[in-house]
Computed example of a mutant assay.
Amino acid sequence: MITQELKQQILSLSSDEQYEIVRLIQEKTNSWTGITKTPGVVGGDACIRNMRIPVWSLVEYRQMGANDDKILEAYPQLTAADLANAWAYAETFSTEIAQAIAENQEA
């Protein structure tokens, strides 16, 4: 069964390789699975799966030198797919994320 074989191959990839696959699919479909924006929740910023973990905070953590494994250790409720979604979103909406980081550093 080709789907099962593909699933096994994807699961054996590194986090970075899985990220590239998710990013490619999201770009092709213009879909941001796992990213939500809710007015009144974390200032309406893009967050992970209806959690109060904003994408900008993960990006900032990464900018401070944390790799995906360290971030997953710090946020055990997140998955590698959540990070892939966050990185893809942040790459596409880099101005939005940079602005949110700047605003939150001032606060």
Rank of each mutant, 00 (worst) to 15 (best):
G40C: 02
Y19A: 05
A81R: 12
K28T: 03
G44F: 02
T36F: 00
S15T: 11
E106W: 07
T3E: 06
M1P: 04
F93Q: 02
R23C: 04
A46R: 12
K7F: 03
T79R: 12
M1I: 06
N67Y: 04
K28H: 06
R62M: 13
E60D: 11
A74H: 05
F93G: 02
I35M: 01
A81C: 08
L24M: 11
I71E: 00
T79F: 05
L83H: 01
G43Q: 09
T79P: 08
A100T: 15
G40S: 13
I48H: 11
L11Y: 00
S94E: 07
M1G: 05
I35E: 00
T92E: 04
S57N: 01
D69Y: 03
I101Y: 05
I25H: 12
P54I: 09
Y75L: 03
M64N: 15
N104I: 00
K37T: 10
I2R: 08
T79A: 02
V59Q: 04
G43N: 03
M51S: 13
S94L: 02
E60L: 04
A66M: 06
S31P: 08
K70V: 06
E96R: 13
T33F: 13
L78Q: 00
D45G: 10
A102M: 08
S57Q: 10
W32K: 13
E17P: 02
D68T: 13
Q8I: 05
V41K: 14
Y75S: 03
T95E: 10
T36V: 03
L78S: 03
T95Q: 12
A107H: 10
L72E: 00
K70D: 04
L24Y: 12
A84W: 12
N67W: 07
V59F: 05
I101P: 03
S12Y: 03
G44L: 04
T95C: 08
W56R: 08
A80R: 15
L24W: 10
R23N: 05
V22P: 10
S12A: 14
G43K: 01
D45N: 14
Q77K: 13
Q63R: 15
N104H: 14
D69P: 04
Y89I: 09
T33S: 08
T33K: 10
T3W: 02
I101L: 01
A107Y: 07
E17S: 10
G65E: 05
F93S: 03
T33H: 08
E5V: 03
N85S: 13
Q26W: 07
L13G: 05
A80G: 13
K37S: 13
A90T: 06
Q77A: 11
A107R: 13
E73A: 09
A84T: 12
L58D: 00
V59N: 03
E103W: 11
I10Y: 13
A80Y: 08
A86I: 09
Y89D: 04
I101K: 03
K28R: 14
Q63N: 15
I97D: 11
K70S: 01
Q8H: 07
S12N: 10
S31R: 15
R62P: 07
L83P: 01
S12D: 09
A98D: 15
W32L: 15
L24V: 05
I48P: 09
Q26S: 08
K37C: 11
T38Y: 07
Y75C: 06
S31F: 15
G65D: 08
